[in-house]
Nucleic acid binder design. Structure first.
Lengths: 243, 243
DNA sequence: GTTAAATATTGACTAAGCGTCATTTTATTG
DNA sequence: CAATAAAATGACGCTTAGTCAATATTTAAC
């Protein structure tokens, strides 16, 4: 039936409107002042209609985070599909993720909230499961490239170490760094003037430590970096002002 | 005056009682169900008295986190004072921090909230400054050991890399990992069955990557680990059931 | 084109929690 | 044992999450 098709489209559109409004409000006024009346006001729908889409405030937050988690996966995927050695593809994923975070400053604001199990728990089981699936998928992209590195003989993991555990290390390093960057922590006072540079150095140290060839002194990764921006993320890197 | 001394002691005691009650409630019922009436009820003081100590709910949360941040610093310090090579002292700090997190499961719950700038901002400027000082101090303990490593010629950092940036890498790796462990993220589903083992492996890979001697294949760090538990954290490691 | 049924939207209302402050209780001092 | 100072209280005002009966709109039937 054509009518119900249009309805569905309109419904989905409104869902996006609500999520994006909440996103904007989260950035503008912060978590504590983010309220349902305001969302209703800005979207120009009534509160009742908002609740038709989302069972509670937390459901919106988690949906917001889910959406950007999915989006970040796309950046990882594009990075992983780059032409080059597995370690270069790894770098491409890292740079892609960095671009994503820069272009979506709300992502880590939402993440901090959703990481809080008290908030996550209030979302519907369906949404929680979707989010877990998204996490798993993103992780599998990273460990897939790692596995390629192993298969192609560029890296030999020690007895008992799995690609997933190395991916975990890259993941947690990035997560911790962006958590600090996205929060009010005064990194300058901690002696870290250029966190992005530090992330880059630490990532390469980690990969070097696992003996993943080509090591950072065997290849000009700054050249690789430039190529990645040029070939894989041309639009995004210019948008972020990275030539 | 003896009376006002006693008063001050009682006041400080009550402050601890409030913080510890909030801590317990945060673990028991979670952030969303943590409320002032409940804190008042459990402490057996009235709400007005609670507000005599803390200007708002967030002030309690931040004070709670500040207290455990200070406590974590003590563990880092004890680790850093260990007898041994700088890299061994580094390992001792990492293990000390891990023990701290295990013994204070509320720490990362509070951290996730306080990391949220909307929540932090509501706390008093004084407390915010105290917290920043605590962060700085903890960071300086870690980078101090790193500096020792450099001075004593065990590690040569590349041009433009500072000890603080390496400390940042260790810090963010740990932060991200404990954030995930402390949240509801299903690490098992992500292929990480033993996150603690992964943290250990990744830390050593990072230090190896920076070329910090003795490298992980030059020294039996599992032996070092056992010694650290035995000599530096005997009480805590038995409490945590690590022989 | 009109009307009945179905569907979508609304916002007044309830419940709950934060933070205040006039009142009461307790402690101190002369 | 007052008189005074300090501390503790909890009812109250205000904001906000979430509900639901009433209203408006759309669709379908004739």
């Amino acid at each position: 039936m054509a009518v119900s098709e249009r309805k569905k489209r309109e419904y989905a559109q409104r869902e996006d409107l609500i999520i994006n409004t909440a996103r904007k409000l989260l950035l503008d006024v912060g978590y504590l002042d983010l309220n349902m009346d305001r969302i209703a006001e800005v979207t120009e729908y009534s509160k009742g209609t908002i609740y038709q889409h989302f069972s509670c405030k937390e459901e919106i937050l988690v949906a917001m985070f889910f959406e950007s988690a999915e989006k970040s996966g796309k950046f990882l995927l594009r990075g992983s599909n780059m032409q080059g050695a597995p370690r270069e593809r790894m770098v491409a994923m890292a740079l892609g993720y960095d671009l994503f975070v820069g272009l979506n400053p709300d992502h880590f604001k939402a993440r901090l909230l959703v990481q809080n199990e008290s908030i996550l728990r209030k979302a519907s089981p369906t949404l929680q499961r979707k989010l877990e699936g998204s996490n798993q998928h993103n992780m599998s992209i990273v460990s897939g490239v790692l596995r390629d590195g192993v298969t192609e003989g560029h890296v030999q993991l020690k007895e008992g170490i799995t690609p997933e555990e190395v991916a975990f290390g890259l993941w947690t390093g990035a997560l911790g760094a962006y958590v600090l960057i996205s929060s009010e922590v005064n990194l300058n006072a901690l002696g870290v003037t250029d966190p992005k540079k530090a992330i880059w150095a630490n990532m390469h140290a980690l990969l070097d430590g696992f003996g993943w060839r080509p090591l950072s002194n065997e290849l000009d990764y700054l050249e690789t970096r430039a190529r990645i921006f040029r070939e894989v993320f041309p639009q995004e890197s210019t948008q972020m002002g990275i030539a």
